[in-house]
Amino acid sequence: MLSIKSLSYSYKKRQRVLDGISTTFQPGHIYGLLGLNGEGKTTLLKLMVGLLLPIEGNVFFGTLKSADRSAAYYNEVFYLSDSSKLPDMNIEAFGKIYGAFYTRYDHQEYINHLKSFNIPMENGLRGLSLGQHRKVHLAFALACNTSVLLMDEPSNGLDIPSKGIFRKLLAKSMSTDKIFVIATHQIRDVDNLFDHLLILNEGKLLIDANLFDLSKEYSITRTPEPEDEIVYSQQEFDGAVHLVKTTAPNEAKLDIEFLFNAFTQSNQTVEL
């Protein structure tokens, strides 16, 4: 379990990017972390992995604290940044050398992921495009088999077929003892993988909820019932679409992009 307790951070003394955030990430779940530009998604991930130090609060994996930046913590928590520029070396050697820092690294798994992405193994990293660098980095991140994998815009630089391959590899790599956190603007690339949604807004968590629980409380409809509470309406070319808080049982899959628009624009905090 990874826990965040009263976490705050600011780049300027009087302007907090994150303000008193507390939440818990449970194994066996894929978390979607969403927010408008500048709302602190990348900052939060960097705090979670210890690249930044909080002005208040802490992040823990078990008893290990991110701010201590210990080898034991990094063996459990891997951060995939939003850009991938890897060192100039042989592709297979990169996995062997850097994989040695992770006790559960699986080199054959790394090779298999590279083959899935059609990466030419005979080339060095220097000869690869930026998109291919991204695929190598993704393959390595998944093969490290850390307990927590934090991903910042993981589909950046991937072409359409590669995005599908990434989704399959991510789903295959998921297990009951792992936590995946994906921060992204490209919601459509990965929304089918999420089972828990977090939305950052004005330094706080506007949404921190399981999608199944959300689907029992809210629905998206063009024809709301008289007793439904309309939370948000959006005009589309063929008419209005509404997010409603419904009294009727509902377990239909929610459109996460619409849900994001609804809650950020209505500024309504969800408590389930």
Rank of each mutant, 00 (worst) to 15 (best):
T103Q: 11
N118Y: 05
K135Y: 03
N192F: 10
F212H: 09
D82A: 08
N192D: 15
S219N: 02
V136L: 02
H113V: 02
Y9R: 09
Y218F: 15
N112K: 10
N90L: 03
Q234E: 15
S162D: 04
G131W: 05
S116W: 00
Y73M: 05
G40A: 09
T23Y: 07
N261D: 13
E122M: 06
Q234K: 15
A141G: 10
N201C: 13
A252D: 10
D68Q: 15
I187L: 15
T247Q: 14
S219C: 11
L125T: 01
N58D: 14
T221V: 13
V49Y: 14
N75F: 06
K41R: 15
D213R: 03
Y74P: 04
E122D: 02
L114K: 00
Y102C: 04
M121H: 01
G57S: 06
N145F: 03
D228A: 09
F60W: 13
G124L: 04
Y79G: 12
P27K: 14
M48Y: 07
R167H: 07
S219G: 02
R16M: 03
Q132E: 06
I256E: 07
K13F: 02
K135V: 01
D106H: 06
D152C: 08
I55E: 08
T221Y: 03
V59L: 03
F194C: 07
E92R: 12
F260H: 12
G32Q: 11
R222T: 15
I119K: 02
L34C: 12
S129Y: 03
I91D: 00
A171G: 04
E225D: 11
